[in-house]
Amino acid sequence: MTKLIIILLSAVFINNYVLSKFLGICPFLGVSKKLNNAVGMSIAVIFVMLIATAATWPIQHYLLDPHDLGYLQTIVFILVIAALVQLVEIVLKRYIPSLHRSLGVYLPLITTNCAVLGVTILNNSENYTFIEAMVNSLGSGLGFLIAMVMFSGVRSAIEGNDIPESFRGLPVTLVAAAITSLSFMGFGGVIENLFA
């Protein structure tokens, strides 16, 4: 149990996918302008990370590993995740239209987002069991949510300021992203010592 909590917390804070591993920067910069969109996107990411892990873990352990096909990992994972997200979109549209309306825009955007692919691949390189892998995905998704919500706050604070012409738009956003990610360095070493 302690191990699961450590995995969850370290995925959220220390190994934060956006701010420490620099994966999923595209939605991080693209959709963080408004808090509503940022939350919607993050929930879609959590959702896709969970189902992607649930689908790719068995593929890795029952199909690729026994047949020494480990080198096909990336291409097979992309294929499966893309198809899965598409399928989920179709199912949502048919049976839960309200959820489709709120998540629908974001689902195709993260079909094979590098954060999603990164979670599934790292789950295997860390040799997690199925439960551990799912917990890690949940933690990674939550970490993404925290990063997005924090950064959308930072961005709305930037908007109201008088920024020098040459820094307007993306440059100042990137500087702000760098400083935000520095703040997460502070978590280094906290979790290991928490349960020591």
Partner: peptide, 21 residues
């Protein structure tokens, strides 16, 4: 294996989009 997985995915998606249009 990649082709087989691709075909399975395609088949599932086509049936799903037909059934749940």
């Amino acid at each position: 294996p990649v082709v087989i997985i691709g075909i399975i995915c395609a088949a599932v998606l086509v049936t799903a989009s037909k059934l749940m249009a």
